[in-house]
Design a binder for these strands. Structure first.
Lengths: 233, 233
DNA sequence: CGGCAATTTGACTATCCTCAACAGGGGTGG
DNA sequence: CCACCCCTGTTGAGGATAGTCAAATTGCCG
């Protein structure tokens, strides 16, 4: 029995395209690895030497200008795929935001395996197409939305992505939701193309307007999802 | 002999992965179509009914906010692939910027064909991964760069993409380059996340500083590529 | 030549950034 | 256990960049 049988993302990651024996072969060329917050798995500009599946945790994909400004260009969650198969250099770094566990492969090994398993390539293609769609939608936010719209869009997206983690009983307040963000204020700013001060001001504005509550630095309670969605533009 | 044999992008588009008989089969389910500037092939939000290869011309991929602000999220050139295979709705419209010729397929037919031809899916995967890289790089521009940096980056990218079209003899001015942009000022603004006025002011500033020349509305001569690259941030 | 749309220019404004000071809170060491 | 410290986040004041609104200009096409 391979370790994959116990993998929590077995049926959601690209591995879902493989049967038992194929999975064993893939398992043979991969290994799991833990990453601590702030630790990087891949650096911007280096040539692509490894790819991975996310098993647990949240990681950011980010690029920097020469003078140090950062833009987070993607955020990956369990079952997501990271890295750049089939040559080239990776255009962005990959860094853990939380404690994370990933299943890493040497890119060369993975490339060879993928070419022999079209069903895996198909899954990877579907995933990549979805990621491209999501990324392009984010460009509208970066290019055309105001700070208020960016913040609202961000909180709406986080609600969708983080799902029902720690949901309150939805009786008297059906759409009240509780989020624990995997981001610092600076990281939120780097996702939205804003400064940390602007993000902070938007948070306090939303709190003063009764749309959200901020019980702690990393937690947000959404009191009025409709108002938030309306502000998202 | 299928019409593909005469196709100018035969060896660059995803079709390059197919042999003669496979190509004939693909040809049987596709047809070429001409599009005039401003005409749309795909609309934002509709479910994905067709995909295509670009044979000639330039097209934009764009999304809009509800209140009409537009962001161009991609620009495609000959040999590029457009559309969203494998279900879903298209998140952006596709509109011709110039006279264009495309080779269109019903999405259902294309999906079925692709699943039976792993080499085609592989080519499509490589292309999609490259497009994702390019898109993410553009996010850094949208989120973190100033208007001046955006304009310079845009002109540098256009120089690379449009290649040697109409190059002057590079003797006395080795890096002087002539571009004919496929964009109006408004469209440049929609690519860069700026307003048309800001784009116009940046053009005149670059001209006054002797970095570029503007012989006509759609033409740019780059007089000092080094200065431009330096400004790109 | 006239009409129309695209672009440029100008004046003014708003949003967001910058710089700076302050507050909070979680952890450590006394 | 408490005090302190450091890091993160918040708040404030002022300024710069890019947006808005309006008018003038260009150049394209009949």
């Amino acid at each position: 029995m391979s370790t994959c049988d116990l993998c929590v993302v077995r049926n959601r990651a690209i591995c879902a395209s493989l049967n038992a024996s194929e999975l064993e072969a893939l398992n043979a060329i991969g290994r799991t690895r833990k990453i601590t917050p702030g630790e990087s798995l891949i650096w911007e500009g280096e040539d692509s030497v490894l790819v991975a599946n996310v098993i647990e945790g949240v990681l950011k994909l980010s690029t920097n200008t020469e003078d140090g400004r950062e833009q987070i260009v993607g955020v990956v969650y369990p079952s997501d795929f990271i890295g750049r198969p089939f040559g080239g250099t990776s255009g962005h770094g990959v860094t853990a935001l939380t404690e994370a566990k990933v299943c890493v492969f040497s890119r060369r090994d993975f490339d060879a395996f993928a070419r022999e398993h079209p069903s895996l390539e198909h899954k990877l293609l579907e995933r990549t197409l979805g990621e491209l769609d999501r990324t392009r939608r984010w460009m509208l936010l970066l290019g055309r939305k105001s700070a208020a719209e960016k913040m609202a869009s961000f909180l709406v997206e986080m609600t969708e992505r983080l799902g029902g983690s720690g949901c309150k009983i939805p009786l008297d307040a059906p759409q009240e939701r509780h989020l624990t963000l995997p981001f610092s204020r600076q990281q939120i700013a780097d996702v939205l193309g804003l400064t940390i001060e602007t993000v902070s001001r938007q948070f306090t504005r939303l709190r003063n307007e009764g749309i959200i509550d901020l019980p702690s630095r990393r937690d947000v309670i959404i009191r009025d999802m409709d108002a938030l969605a309306a502000e998202a533009g």
